[in-house]
Design a protein around this nucleic acid. Structure first.
Lengths: 141, 141
DNA sequence: GTATAAAATAGTAACTGTTATTATTTTTAT
DNA sequence: ATAAAAATAATAACAGTTACTATTTTATAC
């Protein structure tokens, strides 16, 4: 079997991810780590981020646009995405476990989980006039 | 302003999309239309599908893996995705409008909508042994 | 400590899904 | 029929991500 070996890059990536609440992209992490390890490659960041997800030490957030984001917060929670600036915020809500039951009643497969993204305007964007959007206006969200 | 002009390709794409319930990808549509218009280009399919979404005549479903899917069913409903075969099924559920209110209580932005995907095994996959998966096993869903 | 095997790395190429560009064709209004 | 606007096919470019390969690092056995 494949045993896991230590790597200082992975440690750095992990602590970087755990040290922030802003749901960074792989590239965000890459730029940060590069300050400490100038030669680190983007592929290493992707590989280790995905490894952390596999190990259950982080989760990956995939929206329908732009790069995936990573979240080291393992407590159950949903996410809020600002339509204008794309910011992702944690919503410290208890999971709505009853949703699966309700959905199950009109589904002939076996539902085991669900994912919810809430959309809207964040505080900053709501109080400032819209300039340009990072999010598509085509209703695809 | 930009006025819309008729195109037989667009009509074909639209009726193709409306004629099926399986949430095809742009490439699925492309392959179908090509039987009628062998020279149609994939770009035309993408352009028109996105146009239909902009016009509110279809919706785009973006999961965190693989290509986007398109759905001409405009009635409000959620979706179920099979973890094993990737099949997407409609769930004819009334929207859970109370979720936005609940989420709003722990969010300092202004929530206006949400998106839910339910995950599990479809009927076919649930009754057959897993072979290989189309979906990532990394918990990213 | 050295030797060895396994795993991780940096650097790069390749890949997937999608959008942009451009010359040509089609549609629509005059 | 003519002309302007829009749509097209074909292709190139693009973003995000993964795969490949030679080299380096880590862990283990002596």
């Amino acid at each position: 079997m494949k045993t896991l070996k230590y790597s200082r890059q992975r440690e750095s990536i992990k602590s970087c991810l755990m040290g922030r609440r802003d749901h960074p992209t792989a590239d965000d992490v890459y730029l940060t780590i590069r300050q400490e390890y100038p030669n680190i490659s983007l592929g290493t960041v992707y590989r280790n981020l995905n490894l952390l997800v596999e190990l259950g030490e982080a989760q990956k957030l995939s929206f329908g646009y732009g790069p995936d984001r990573f979240d080291a917060d393992l407590t159950p929670h949903y996410h809020f995405i600002c339509r204008q600036c794309g910011r992702v915020a944690d919503l410290p809500l208890m999971p709505f476990s009853d949703l699966d039951c309700k959905a199950q009643q009109c589904c002939d497969g076996a539902i085991d989980s669900h994912l919810i993204y809430f959309y809207g305007l964040c505080k900053a964007c709501g109080s400032s006039p819209a300039e340009y959007g990072r999010l598509p206006k085509d209703g695809s969200l």
